[in-house]
Amino acid sequence: MIPAFFRNKDFLAGALFLAIGLAAIHIADRDYPMGTALRMGPGNFPVLLGGILGLFGIYLAARGLGWPEKTPGPVAWDWRPVSCIVASMLLFGFLLPRTGLVPALAVMFIVAALGGREFRWREVLVLTVVMTAFAVAVFVYLLKLPFQLVPGVYLL
């Protein structure tokens, strides 16, 4: 059983802000000199910001816990679209220097399309071919980006 506050938008946002704020303070405090009010060091401003962020985080988290009736409704995650999009971008970045533009785009299109509400193989393949041709024409041919198309093959 997941407690109700774990789906509360204010609580989650507050907890996230608090965590980031504390991490920022911790790193700045450990690694960067603080300086003085006259000569602020590199650690000064980050600690200030981390503190502000953390305080807002505490307020939001408390609001989420204390007045759940005043906060927006429970959050409903839908991880499939976002993970497909993110994965397709990571794969593109990984593949482009290794296999060239054409395979990288093909993989990117198919993985991204898996995040859609409906996936039709024929459509996705046509879209991939058309847009890959477009990308080669515009980015490689017209804008002269130095991408290899497939391993070892360059247009220019």
Binding site: S88, L105, F109, G115, R117, L127
Partner: peptide, 9 residues
């Protein structure tokens, strides 16, 4: 569904 993969590209 045709647009969004192209935007990602």
């Amino acid at each position: 569904r045709w647009l969004f993969p192209s935007i990602v590209m």
